[in-house]
Amino acid sequence: MGTVIDMVSIAQPLFSLFPGNSIRLSVRAARQCLHDAGADHSNIGLLINTGIYRYRNTGEPAIAALIQGKITSHKPVLKVNGNSGNTFSFDLNNGGCGLLTAIEIIHRSISNGEISSGMVVTGDSEPFYDFSERFSFAAAAAAIILSGTSDSGGFSLFRTYSYPEYSDELVSRTSFSSRGPSRKGMNILNIGQKESYPDLCVDCAEKSLFRFLDETGQNPDDIDLIIPSQSPRGFANRLNNRLGRNNNFIELPETGNKVLHTAGSAFALKKVWDDHRLKKSRNIIFLTIGSGINVSITLYRN
C-alpha cells in the first residue's frame, strides 16, 4: 500500500513589515490544505508539526496540538473506536529533514492500517521579534495532506544519511545575554552557521543522492524531478549546477536576505503541484538536508 500526496498548501505573512507568527501561519496553511483537498479534519489520524523556530519559543503543549485545536470543530470524543475519528498530534524536530521524517511516519501508520490519512505541517518564524542574532529564515509555513492508496504509487523508499563530523557547522541556540536596550538581559536566539556549511551540504547531498540511487537500484536517467530543501542559502543552486539537472531540479528564486527553512521543500512541491509537473512526472526524488549534517531522500512515484 502506498501513500500519496492529496494536497499541499503554503502560507507567508500577509504584510512583510511584520515578522510573522509561526503558529498562525501553520494554522493558515493547514486550513487552506483541508479546504483545497475537500477533506474534513476528522479524517486526519496523525498530525505532525516539523517547524523548529516557533512563536515565543513555546515548549508545551506541542505546536501540533495547538494547530489541531485551531482546525478542529471540537466535537466531543466520547466514542473511541480504534484510532479512527481521533487525531494524535506531536512535534518532530529533525532540522531541514523533519518534513520527510514526518512523511515517513505517516506512511508507516497508513501502511499499518492505523490511519487512512495524515497531515504534516511545518512553519518557522523569528520567536521574538528582534530577539535574535543572524536569524536568516523567512517566516513561512506549509501543510501537506497524505492518504493511502491501494496501488503501488506514492512514497516508497526512505533513506537517511548522516555526516556527524559536520555536527558543529550549523548550531542554533538561545542563550541569556545582558545585551539589549535595557542591559538587564534577555534570551537571545543565535544562529551560528559556518561559511563552509553550504558547500558541505552540497557535497553531502550529492554523495547521498548517488548512494540512494545505487542502494535502491534506480537509474539516474529515470528520475524526472528532484524536489530539494531550499536552505542553506545557495544550496539548491549549487547542487543543481553540480548535478546538471536544470529544469528538472526545483530551485525557488531567492527573495531578500531570508531563506525558506523547514518549509522550503514543501514550497518547491507547491510550485510543481500548481504547474502540474508533479502529476506529469513518473519518478520524483525528495531530497532534504539539515544540521547534523543529515540528508533524507525518498522516492515518489506516479
Partner: peptide
C-alpha cells in the same frame, strides 16, 4: 488510544522566558 484532545490545549502551557 494515543489521542490529542486539542480543545484542552490551552490548559497547560510552557515556554522560555524572555528576560
Amino acid at each position: 488510544g494515543f489521542t490529542t484532545l486539542s480543545r484542552y490545549s490551552n490548559l497547560c502551557t510552557g515556554r522560555q522566558n524572555r528576560r
